[in-house]
């Protein structure tokens, strides 16, 4: 097990969205545009990084019987911090991510990594895991966001990228569009994997 391997596994091999299918709530809900996807991805990565470090540090003093409540407290604390700091210094992003920031608490990726990885590995490996998973999550969210924003609004990061004659298919930025896009991207991932 080495640092680089832990760092890159989240991108393709153990991609949290397309392979592990974790954290579906933010994936489906906030990917209406690339900027929302990036914001959500970075916020979740930050929480994941912090919680992985803390949990890896306290793994020896946490009795296994109450580990889940302890993890939740740690994660919830970091989520609240992100929520408050964002509201204070990044109000525009905070407004558009709104309800989904507190929901990072129940993002399965974070608790999942805490339970499956950070509670069994040392701090350095946990950092690598958090960064890799966070990066994979952010990139996957951006990919979904890219497809949805281009198809559904004709823009990318707010810039018009399609010809003006293109009438955006609104469904892509509505809830059903999230499921359809995710399904197609997942199928594409599986197809590429099988070919290898």
């Amino acid at each position: 097990m080495n640092f680089a391997k832990e760092l890159t596994k989240g991108l393709i091999k153990d991609n949290p969205i397309f392979v592990l299918v974790l954290g579906m709530c933010p994936t489906l809900a906030v990917t209406t545009s690339v900027i929302n996807a990036l914001g959500m991805g970075f916020a979740a990565t930050f929480v994941l990084l912090c919680s992985n470090i803390i949990i890896s540090l306290i793994k020896n003093i946490t009795p296994s019987k109450i580990r889940i409540p302890v993890y939740i407290v740690v994660i919830a604390a970091f989520v609240s911090i992100v929520d408050m700091v964002m509201a204070a210094y990044l109000p525009a992003l905070h407004k558009s991510l709104g309800l989904f920031i507190p929901l990072i608490v129940v993002n399965c990726i974070i608790l999942g990594r805490a339970e499956a990885f950070a509670s069994k590995n040392n701090v350095v490996m946990s950092i690598a895991d958090a960064l890799g998973m966070g990066l994979g999550f952010t990139l996957s969210l951006s990919l979904v966001g890219t497809v949805r924003e281009i198809v559904g609004a004709g823009t990318w990061l707010g810039m018009r990228v399609t010809p003006l004659t293109y009438d955006p298919a609104l469904i892509a930025i509505l809830a059903p569009g999230a499921f359809i896009t995710l399904g197609f991207l997942m199928a594409l991932m599986n197809m590429l994997k099988e070919k290898k």
């Binding site: 009438d167 298919a169 609104l170 469904i171 892509a172 509505l174 059903p176």
Partner: peptide, 10 residues
């Protein structure tokens, strides 16, 4: 329904 959600105007 897909068309209705995507291009309600048209």
């Amino acid at each position: 329904v897909f068309l209705m959600a995507s291009w309600p105007t048209q």
